[in-house]
Design a protein around this nucleic acid. Sequence first.
RNA 1: GCCCCGGUAGUCCAAUCGGCAGAGACGAUGCACUCAAACUGCAUACAGUGUGGGUUCGAAUCCCACCCGGGGUACCA
Length: 830
Amino acid sequence: MSEQAGHERETYDVDAVQDKWQRVWQEIEPFKADDDSEREKRYALTMFPYPSGDLHMGHAEVTALHDVIARYWWQKGYEVLNPMGWDSFGLPAENAAIRNDAHPADYTYGNIATQLESFQKYGVSFDWSRRFNTSDPSYYRWTQWLFLKFHEKGLAYRKNSPVNWCPNDQTVLANEQVLADGSCERCGAEVTKRELTQWYFRTTSYAQELLDCLDDLQPTWSDKVINAQRNWIGRSEGAHVDFIVEGREEPITVYTTRPDTIFGTTFMVVAVDAALADELVTDGQRPAFEAYRDEIRKASEIERMATDRPKTGVDLGVTARNPVTGEQIPIWATDYVLADYGTGAVMGVPGGDQRDWEFATQMGLPIVRTTQPPADFEGEAYAGEGQTINSPADGVDAPLDINGMPVEEAKKATIAFLAGKGVGEPTVNFRLRDWLLSRQRYWGAPIPIIHCPVDGEVRVPEDQLPVELPELRGADLKPKGTSPLGAASEWVNVACPTCGGPATRDTDTMDTFVDSSWYFFRYVSPKDETQAFDTDLANAWGPIDLYVGGDEHAVLHLLYARFFTKALRDMGLVNWDEPFSAYLSQGKVVNNGRKMSKSLGNGVSLGEQLAEFGVDAVRLTLVFASPPEDNIDWADVSPGGSVRFLQRAWRLSGDVTSAPGTDPTAGDVGLRKVTHKTLHEAEGLVENHRFNVVVARTMELVNATRKAIDSGCGPEDPAVREAVEAVAILLSLVAPYTAEEMWERLGHRPTVARAGWPTIDEALLVEDSVVAVVQIQGKVKARIDVSPDVSAADLEAAAMADPTVEKALEGKTVRKVIVREPKLVNIVAG
RNA sequence: GCCCCGGUAGUCCAAUCGGCAGAGACGAUGCACUCAAACUGCAUACAGUGUGGGUUCGAAUCCCACCCGGGGUACCA
C-alpha cells in the first residue's frame, strides 16, 4: 500500500522543475528540424503572433493545442518542422511610436523579446533556430521581391477606384478588412469611401480555383471556414444582356442570374455612382440626378447598407429597348445597385425580385409576373420555381416564347436566343474583388516601385532590394491622409533605374497581410540570402500538414495565403496547390460568458495563471476544457484540478520499484490491457484532434494504475512500470515538465519528448469476453458474458437461455430476433 | 432574410457504424485524516439528450418542422 490517507502527499516544486527543464531543453534542442533527415517529414504550423505586449490566454490556448500534434508527430517518429516567428509590421507599433515619440521598432522588438521569453517558458516544441520577424529587412526584402514577381506577371497593378477608407487609421483598407457592419476590422471606426489610385493584387484571377479547391479541403478544414470562404468568393451564374439605347452607340450591358424573367423587365437601374449614370443622364434630368448623387455620397456606409429603408432613385430621362419585347423602358439611377459588381447596371424585374418590386412600387412603374407562383403564395415578388408565364403576354407577338417552361429551361432558352442575336451570353460573376494592398502608413514593407515621368511605373531592380524604410519616428509618423514616407524627401527622390532621370519612389507600404501570406514558405530556409525560399525544401516539407489558428482569419489571412500559394505555384516556385492540408480553428478563451476585455474588467492574466498553477496545469486545463474548436470559459474550468491531477500522475513515478528496461510481458495482464488500449485509442483521438478526450483517457490510465499499485498487482509488477511510462509519454504531449520529471524519476535520460511512442501489442487489445446486452422491445432485460468472436447463433441461444429473458418471454410469441454479435440481441415479442 | 455550426446531469464535456445514456473532470454532499481547517484519499447523489412529429426491432445519433445560442453574409441583381 502507498501512504495512508491523511498524510501529507508528496509533491514536486513546479517552479524548480520549470527552471530545470528549460535549461536542459535549451541545451539539447530536441525539436530542431533536420532538412536532411531520412524520416518522413511533417510540417506543423500555428499562426505567428503580432508582438503587442506579452502573450495572453489566446496565445496560450492555440499553442497548447497545436503542440499536442507537433509533439505527437515527434513521438510517432516523424521529422517535424514546427517553426515560430513574428508578424511584426503593423499599426499598434506605429501608434505607440507617435504617442511616445519613438520608433516603431522600439515597441516591436521589445515585445518580441518579451514574447520569446514567455514562449520558451511555456515549453512549446518550436524550432527556434528558424525564427524571423516580418519587419526584418532580411525578410521584407523578399516580400518586395515577390511583389516584383507579381508585378511582372500582371498580378499586381494600380487603378483608380472608390476604396474603403478608415478615417481613424488614415489609410485605405481591403474589402476583407471591413466588417459586416461597415466598421474597420482593426480599430472599429466607421469606414468611408474615397476615390483613390491604389495597388491591387489580382485575386480575382484565381477566384474559380480558390472556390474549387475548397471541395478538397472540406474534410480537413472546419465547416465554418469553408462556408465563410465560399460565401466570400460568391460565385453566381447568369448572363450578360445588351440593351440598346436610342442615339447611343454602345449598348448597356446588364448582369442577371434570371434571364428567364426578361419579359418582366419594365425598367432598368444603374448605380448612381457609376460613370455610366453620368454619361446617360439627359440635360433636363441632370440637376435632379446630381442633387441625388450628392445626397447619396454624403450618406455613411452604415446608412447605405441598411436594407430596410425605402428605395430611392432618379429617372435619367433616357430609355432602353427590351430585346425580347421591343418595348422602350425607362432607365433610372439608384443606390441599391452596386457600381462595382457585375456591370453596375441591372434589368428591373419587379415581379421576380423583391428589391425591384419595392422600387417599382415606390416609383409607380409597371409590374409583370413571369413565373407562376404557387396558389398559396402571399408575398410580393416571386423568385421561386414555377412555370414561366407572360413570356410573351397573351396575344403579343415576340421572337421568343418561353411560356410554360420551368425556370432552368427558360433560362437556357433565353440565353440561347440572346446569344443567337449577339446581344447576350452566359456569364459567371464573383463577389470576390481584387485585394487592395497599398497602405498610407509607415511600419510596413515599402512598395518597390519607382514612378518616372518618362518610363512610368518602374520596378526597383532586384539587386537594389531591400528598399529599406527611411528613418522616421514620433511625430513624423502622424497620419495625415497621405503616406508618411512622402516626407522623407531624400528617400523619395531617386534616379529612374531605366532612364536615369529624376523620379520618385512609391510612398505606400504593403498591407501587413502580404507579409503573412508567404511566411510559411520562408521557414523552410529562413537564412537564405539568395532567394525568398528554397523550392526543393518547400516541396519536401510542405504543404503544411496541420495549421492551427483562429476563425477571425477565415476570409482574411487564409484566403490571401491560398491566393499567394497558387500564384507562386504558377511561377514555378513551389509545387503545392494549397498551403494548408488541414486546418484546425481553435475557439476563444472567454471569462464569465464574455470576451475578455479591459473595459469589462474581466481579463485573465496568463502570467498570473502561470505563476499560480504552473505551465503544465494551465496547458492541461486549456486542452482538457473542451473540444479545440469550442470556446473555453475560464470561469468554468479548474486549473487547480489540473494541478491535482498532475501531482497524482507524477506520484505514480515514485511508486514504481522495478528497474528501467524491465520486460513488461510478464506483468499483470489486466493493467497491461488498460495501458495498451489507452495508447491505441489516444492515437486515433490525437489524429482526429480530440485532445480533450485524450486527457480523459490518460486520467483513466492514471486511476487504473493507482488502483493496481494500491490494491492490485502492487508497485513491483512490470505492468506498473509500463503503465507509468505510458502516462509520461501521453503527458509529454500536454504537460512537458511533469512528463520530463516523471521520465527522469523512472530512471531514464532526457528527453521524454523524443522517447518514441510505445509499440502497441495488438494481442492485448482483444478482450477475453464482452458483455452482450439482451433487449426485449428495445429495453435492456439482461447482460451476458460472451466471447468477442461468438457466432450469431450461439449468442441468440445464450440470450434465449437467460433466466430473466425466459421469464420475460413467458406467454409471448417471439416475432423477430435481431442479433448484432457480439454486443447485442433484441427480441421482438408480443 | 439567406448560409454554416451547436443544444446531453448544477457546470465543462464523453458516448467513432443507429445498439447498455456516462468515460473524464468541476462543483456539491458524506466519510476518513486533523485540536480544527486546508491539503489528500475514499464514497455518494444528480440528466433520459432543446420542442414536436417521422423512419426503425431499436434514435442523443438519421429525416422534417419549430425554439434557443454562436458564427458568416447581406440591396451581389
